[in-house]
Design a protein around this nucleic acid. Sequence first.
DNA 1: CACGGTTACGATTATCGTAAGCATT
DNA 2: AATGCTTACGATAATCGTAACCGTG
Lengths: 306, 306
Amino acid sequence: MREEISNRLASLSIRDLMLVAAVDRCGGFRPAAEEMGISVSGLSHQVRKVEAVLGVTIFERGARNVMPTEAGREMLRHVAGFLRHAADMGHAADRRAGPFGGRLRVGVISTVGPFLMPHVVSLARDWHPRLELALMEGKHEGLSRRLRDGEIDLVITACPHADEAFDRAELLSEPFCLLARADNPLAAGGPIEPERLAGLDLLPLSEDDFPTETAPQGAHRAGMRIFRSHGLSIETRVRLVSTHGYACLVPAFTCGELTAGGKLALVEILNRPVGRQIFGLWRRSSPYAAELGRFAAAVSVFMRAP
Amino acid sequence: MREEISNRLASLSIRDLMLVAAVDRCGGFRPAAEEMGISVSGLSHQVRKVEAVLGVTIFERGARNVMPTEAGREMLRHVAGFLRHAADMGHAADRRAGPFGGRLRVGVISTVGPFLMPHVVSLARDWHPRLELALMEGKHEGLSRRLRDGEIDLVITACPHADEAFDRAELLSEPFCLLARADNPLAAGGPIEPERLAGLDLLPLSEDDFPTETAPQGAHRAGMRIFRSHGLSIETRVRLVSTHGYACLVPAFTCGELTAGGKLALVEILNRPVGRQIFGLWRRSSPYAAELGRFAAAVSVFMRAP
DNA sequence: CACGGTTACGATTATCGTAAGCATT
DNA sequence: AATGCTTACGATAATCGTAACCGTG
């Protein structure tokens, strides 16, 4: 069996081997005991225990000095390699000892990433300066699967309800506004009344805006005709708007700078009746769940402030 | 400091890491506990201890399954390497676990090796079939120094008194006989009386026969003129005898077959008044001292028997 | 007698198991 | 209700230190 191999050695601790190495390094029990902060007696006990466990007498105890036996020298080489390995593991552990295991893996849906991630990153750096961030963009479904499988720790998405095993926190509410060509009459007179949406032939919303089959709040209230679609990206919507003169609902923050050199216009909708909510999601069972909750709250607070 | 590096990990035992690896391998605490022959509770304790010591949460405990965190996976890689190292050390220890640490290093003086070592080797193989023998020939002083320094474990020599730190056992008594050219009148009539030695111009004895300043027992009794020398080997003595016609005392067993194709003759001396004793020497502090004593006794018994 | 490691034995600490607890399905 | 890990707590065992004990120079 895989474990039977070293079952005999199981009772050895790293400390035990450090003691053996110390006796070798110091050339005697007394100085080694002092260096390791242990009594000579305890040291003698532990070294004998190691020798008993290995079945090898490592040290020959002379009248005035201690020297390793031939077999002991071989064991000491192994012990040295062993302790080197332990030190390596210690260093690796140190790097991983910080919050989130030293690395926070964040997934974000494509329509949120561009405007939110810079804030999340700077917030994370304030939060834990040494934290390494691993970012990933994608669609809600893929990110959700990766979150469930433990490939990422935090997902920022627009889907209001998710896996039962996830905890979530609302990060921000993002209103929609109307994207139209600059020559469209809608673009002329500033903010428009929600009622005017009802008469428009709007392009379908992207799945990233409302990833599941949920209708957006206020959309029906506004009387819009919603065409469902999947994967209609912002970029595609922009092309359709600019080439065919359609009007289109787009997330306001995502498209804040999307005027394409004056050829397009973003029209605010009064009272913001349509919009989407953006959530942070994480596994309830994650060891970082509490910290993730605090971080999400900080993001939320930050996004409400200027 | 060299030790401060992994001081934090000192309290980890190999078993602790085996437990962690088992949880990973079995995918849960319950099966891992069963495999490792421990209660689930104890396993939970130990795994948490490891996580606390490393400062890294290795496992995410879900409702129905356990999976390693990202940081945990890195730790598990280290743990696996660690346990591999432990297994290697276990194997090395197994090879060294036998008597004499698996390898008996024997030094023998040049004039004794040729006739004694074959017996010692076969006796050792009977004694401990798996024992590896490391043999070395040399002069008494060098072997004695190596014995003192721990480079060898057993020295077979002719010097009756040695370092205070050595224990010894007489292995055998070897008589001297006279080596002469076949045309020498001494070689004619079989065994000779000891008294006849007094009148001969004998070559000096080698240091290997009487390595220190000790006069050989019976030498003065026989009235011989002893010329002291160092390093006059058997081979040199044979050449001097065969080319110049000298007579020469030589150890009987060492030179038992030394008739050089009929040109030389070995003449026995009646009552064997001159000879040397061959001893086994080992450090009193050697962990194998007791076993070495028994082995020497076995050699002694064997050499007395036919 | 000084030195260095070992042994005896009592005290502290760690480890472990039973059983109850808590969260999830 | 069943599953799976954790916590509480008492029992057992390992570790450790003081002091007495050899064996050696």
